[in-house]
Design a protein around this nucleic acid. Sequence first.
DNA 1: TCGTTCGTTATGTATATACATATTGATGCC
DNA 2: GGCATCAATATGTATATACATAACGAACGA
Lengths: 244, 244
Amino acid sequence: MTALHDIPQVQEAPSLHRRILADITDKIVSGEWPPGHRIPFEYELSAQYGCSRMTVNKALSQLAKAGLIERRRRSGSFVSQPKSQAAILEIHDIKTEVQALGLPYRYKLLGRTMRRATAGDRERLGLAGPSPVIALACRHFAGARPFCHEDRVISLAAVPEAEGEAFQASAPGPWLVDRVPWSVAEHRIRASGADASIAALLDIEAGAPCLVVERRTWSAEAPVTHVRFTYAGDSHMLVARFTP
Amino acid sequence: MTALHDIPQVQEAPSLHRRILADITDKIVSGEWPPGHRIPFEYELSAQYGCSRMTVNKALSQLAKAGLIERRRRSGSFVSQPKSQAAILEIHDIKTEVQALGLPYRYKLLGRTMRRATAGDRERLGLAGPSPVIALACRHFAGARPFCHEDRVISLAAVPEAEGEAFQASAPGPWLVDRVPWSVAEHRIRASGADASIAALLDIEAGAPCLVVERRTWSAEAPVTHVRFTYAGDSHMLVARFTP
DNA sequence: TCGTTCGTTATGTATATACATATTGATGCC
DNA sequence: GGCATCAATATGTATATACATAACGAACGA
């Protein structure tokens, strides 16, 4: 076999294992290799590309990790059955989002309370006992109009520094991201009618459709924060893009 | 250096590069290594773990691909600044979703039209010319109650077989997934008030909040289908989970 | 016929090595 | 001082090799 590092590289940018990966990905998404199809063995591909098995292995391992193929010892590698579809949903900072709309951003704190966790707080955070929390309410503005209402609880056990923070100048979201490393987040997205108080705060009619995004965040098993963002239905849209 | 393949493996399951990856991930998400921190060089880690540089490289490359670290030649590898948050949103089949609620699933076609793409169709699909499309409307039921309304356009250029399909027995979603390989999908999620016809079809009040999920799918640059699912606000919720 | 054993096979992991390449920091020249 | 040059350095990619491991299948014995 010709050792690739012996022959001078003429031009081309992408590395060999990337090329192999791209070729196979292409065959799969084009449908040429349908789900269940057995793709060539590593040694066959290494012969075909004139490279070592390790190089092919690198490409196939990545495909397997991405879920495009499944690998079985002794049997070979197979194109996966299409899984339940998944999409990458980017959750931007609200400030960035507003500025992306070309509007000036403003943030206003509505209230800040410190208390021992109520039953509601415990459920929102997934806390066991009545440990202290900080509850915050605020509004984010796009230009003159209210863009989003934020209702948040922070566990002081996880973020003791929050006790000394007034949250007057900067919104709690960015403040937390900068300060607390987090390991898991869970999002719930639903539509809901604005109740009287939300309607007043967002300057919309009571019962008007709103997009509600809830996020719960943990850091190493310990709950950190639960937040509920409420957007007027016509002001906001989540966009997610997925490439398999 | 002791060659690892010379000494007998005593026990332990996870491979070495996984352990390295897990260790570093842990240091990052725990905050011990904050954003900007320079993580040890490959040769330092290989000395520390008593393994070859290639093994460390495998772990670090994966971390870089996952976006947890950034690698710079000559400088080393650094913990990334937290990016805009992203979450994996799983989009399930509606049938599966309904059955997960423990309710019997039923599907009913409301209408099927074949036509040259109207301006609206072209915008929905991102089509250039007035090529033929099939427009479908249907309802998905959870038990006796309507669960979701589906409004779909399929480009016949991309899926000629759709012309011969009545879509009476099975919903167009699963039918397409089985037949057409797709390369990109884009989702838009928003809240919207039910208009009169949707309200009637979903058996809710006009103006009631609904969750609207739109999906556009391409296969190798060519638009395949655009679909709009409308769920009554209280019947459905999207859940996404993210671990960095 | 039913298991058990065992060899074969393809993938999984790791090593040592080699050379490419981008970038930094120091060197030396004008 | 400013600028081109160059060596050192850390990562990027690839190779050949080695052995482990899971799993299938055939051979074999009760």
